[in-house]
Design a protein around this nucleic acid. Structure first.
Lengths: 96, 96
DNA sequence: AGCGATTTTACCGTAAAAGATAAGATTCCT
DNA sequence: AGGAATCTTATCTTTTACGGTAAAATCGCT
């Protein structure tokens, strides 16, 4: 996680979790009990300082009764799956 | 990761990654070069034997030019975000 | 069957996630 | 201002992801 786009991703996901939690009026302590994830760990995730595992995100989404997609919702290629990034960094080149 | 639903989640996500990779005609070795994730690690993820970090999934999605949502696409509450799980396991009870 | 490519598995080392706990720092009250 | 709840940060321990490498296993091929 040295990358810059990755830091943004973590920050965005964390912000969405925090917003969802706020809407439901849950404290970190309450969400910790519901998920089995400690409050300090949740805090780190919500503030984008930790790179959570897939099942960790899943437990958070489940506890708050929202889809994983709701929490992740990446801004980049968000839907169609048929969009070509014009020149987005990687180039398959000789491979493929 | 002792849970059963979590093992299913990892298996599902792994299967989707493998399918996407197959469609694009990439080998593990090629995807490894594109993502910076080793081929053995990718193999473990695709076979549901590893619980990947968020940025790891993101790098895989980016390399294959698909959205994170495409790869994750949880089956449970998959979209609307306004669906109430009738009694899906957790009960907020006194909290909330 | 045999060969090459691809994939899986095993082992080791490093880094980082996650739990527990405690101590600060904030925020929100009255 | 003072106090309580909430959130953040730090430290320590355990677990696990990840890379590298190498060895098996599997899967086309002709």
């Amino acid at each position: 996680m040295v990358d810059d786009a990755e830091k943004k991703l973590l920050a965005d996901v964390g912000r969405r979790i925090r917003e969802t939690r706020a809407v439901q009026g849950l404290s970190l302590e309450q969400l910790a009990r519901l998920t089995g994830i400690s409050a300090p760990a949740l805090s780190l995730i919500e503030t984008g300082k930790r790179d959570p595992r897939l099942t960790t995100l899943s437990r958070i989404a489940d506890a708050m009764r929202v889809s994983l997609a709701t929490i992740i919702a990446d801004g980049s290629h968000t839907a169609k799956a048929s969009d070509r990034a014009p020149s987005g960094g990687y180039d398959l080149g000789e491979y493929q």
